[in-house]
Amino acid sequence: MSSISQNAEVARADRLIERHEKDNTTIFGFWVYLMTDCVLFASLFATFAVLRNNTFGGPSGATLFSLPYVLVETLSLLTSSFTCGLALVSAQARRKTQTIIWFIITFALGLTFLSLELSEFHKFVVMGDSWRRSGFLSAYFTLVGTHGLHISIGLLWMAVMIVFIYKRGINKLTMKRIRMLSMFWHFLDVVWIFIFTIVYLFGALHA
C-alpha cells in the first residue's frame, strides 16, 4: 500500500518537474525570439547608419530633433520599465491588485511615450519633412516607428494581461506570461536607449 502511494508521489513530483521544464522551455523560447528581434533592429540600425547623411537637400537630425523633448519621452519609457519591474515583484509576491495597479501605471506611461512619439512624427510631417522627403527621413521614421510599433504591441499585450490577471488571478500560467511581458518591455527599453543615443544624441551633435 505504502509503496503504491509512494509511487504516486514520485509520479506527481515527476510531473511537476515536467511542468517546470515546460515553463523553462517557454522562457528559453522567448529569449530566442528576442534574439531574432535584436537582429531585426540591428538591420534597421544598419540602414539608418547608411542613410543618415542622405538628406537630399532636406533637414538633418541636427535641425530636426529637440533633445529636451526626446528626454521627456525617454524618461517616461524608463520609468515605465521601472514600474513594470515593480509589477513583476508584486506578482511574485502574489499580490494581485498591486500587480494590476503597477501594470496600469506602466500602461499609462507607455501610452504617454507613444503619444509623444506620434505627436513628434506629426510635427515633422506637417513641416513637410515626412518619410517621403529623403533617405535619411525614411530611415528615421522606419527605425523609430518600428520601435513605436513594438511599444503598441506591448501595450496591447499589457491590456490583455491586465484583464487576464483580473479574471484568473496570479497562477503559474499568468506568472510565466508576466515574466515574458516584462522581458519584452525591458528589451524595448534597451532598444530605445540605442535609438536615443544613435539617432537623437549623435544626430543632434553632428551638425
Binding site: 537630399f56 518619410w131 533617405g135
Partner: peptide, 21 residues
Amino acid sequence: ALDRTIGTHFFTAGYGGNMMM
C-alpha cells in the same frame, strides 16, 4: 514594400536612397 507603398526612399535611385544597401 514601404518604398513602393508609402513612398519612402530606402532603395530608390535619387532622394538619398541607396540601391546597393
